[in-house]
């Protein structure tokens, strides 16, 4: 899936993507502001931001590719490599660490035969660490797709992977 610079010609944004970006672009004095939300919108439809997608967004917003790349590589939730259907972000910050996030990571990786950052062979799941999810009183926690999962243990992980 690696793309070389020569191959990364621009592709077009879909009508739906453009519609969703246009719905919020006027919230700001300067359209550059919509960059991160535009990436979020496009990623929602395409799962990740390829080089050509990045260029399409930059062209649409009329901002430089370098500027957009500087934002895309900075934020934790913009994926610049392909991910699976569901991304499992396990929290590895302090309380979750204390209460077993390393076991959660090990169990996830062992069940899916992956290392953190990798996608399972069937393309279902990508495992990534994430910083504190704000659920420390119900640690360990993870964000599974859009859903916050709390009080995790190996049984709960098995249950999540069964679906």
């Amino acid at each position: 899936m690696k793309q070389t610079a020569e191959k990364s010609t621009s592709e077009d944004l879909t009508a739906l993507e453009i519609q969703e970006i246009n719905a919020i672009i006027n919230h700001y004095e300067d359209h550059t502001s919509v960059a991160i939300e535009a990436l979020n919108i496009v990623q929602k439809h395409r799962r990740w931001i390829s080089d050509s997608t990045l260029k399409a967004v930059a062209d649409f917003l009329q901002i430089s590719l370098a500027h957009l790349e500087s934002v895309a590589t900075f934020d934790n939730l913009i994926y610049r490599q392909p991910v699976g259907n569901t991304v499992i972000h396990y929290c590895n910050s302090v309380t979750c660490w204390m209460l077993g996030s390393e076991q959660i990571r090990e169990h996830l990786c062992q069940r899916l035969h992956v290392e953190p950052g990798e996608t399972s062979a069937d393309g279902q799941y990508t495992i990534l660490p994430i910083v504190c999810l704000g659920a420390c009183h119900r640690a360990p926690a993870a964000l599974v797709g859009d859903e916050l999962k709390i009080d995790l243990n190996t049984d709960a992980i098995d249950e999540i992977l069964k679906r």
Partner: peptide
Amino acid sequence: DEMEPGAFKDR
């Protein structure tokens, strides 16, 4: 933008 490790109040 609550993200301080250990903080879960604003959520």
